[in-house]
Amino acid sequence: MKVGVVVFPGSNCDRDMYHVLTDVFNFDAQYYWHEKSLPKNIDAVILPGGFSYGDRLRAGVIAAHSPIIKDVQKMAEKGIPILGVCNGFQILVESGLLPGVLLKNESLNFMCKWTNLIVENNKTPFTNQFKLHAKIPIPIANGEGRYFVDDDTLKQLKKKNQIVFRYTQVVNGSSNRIAGVCNEEGNVVGMMPHPERAVESEINPVDNKPSSLIFESLLVKMGVTN
């Protein structure tokens, strides 16, 4: 079960994600430097968080031009599960794989805090083990995390079931309290909160089981477990 963790200059949650994939969920994870290509036999791709290119110009925009993104796009078309977390989400948005844009938080500050999510779509490869509207305690840590779409696009997102996660409360001013979305096909998912920071009970002050389902969903999708 091969999972690729894409590393850009400035990624800084790559090692955390790798640890969770390998040590907690027993995936066969590999790092892929942004200038390399992805092997054909890969089963899932994760773009971890961080500050690719120092978040310069706009978070994710420079990394979206990296050579590896072409491969990610091909994988996306093939229906392979792709998850972008935080900066990974920003990169997916900037490379056109996901709709919308991520703006500066309403507070204009970087925010690091624990929030609660509600699962709005439990059909994606990363949410298939959740009950619809299940609650997930999970931390955010971002400066440009306010998801924004115009009203028409929002209607489309709702219609096509592309909203995956919403915050239970207003956190950063994002449209419709959106925390994560997917593409129309549902195989590409982006989310601002950090599941890799919430799956181990030692560092999760609330409950680590809900966020673990994100990774367990992927295991089920890949047929490793039922």
Partner: peptide
């Protein structure tokens, strides 16, 4: 101006 330099070197000149 690190931001200007990054935009030049990692985005514009790479195109």
């Amino acid at each position: 101006d690190p931001e200007g330099d990054t935009i030049l070197n990692d985005l514009v000149l790479k195109g």
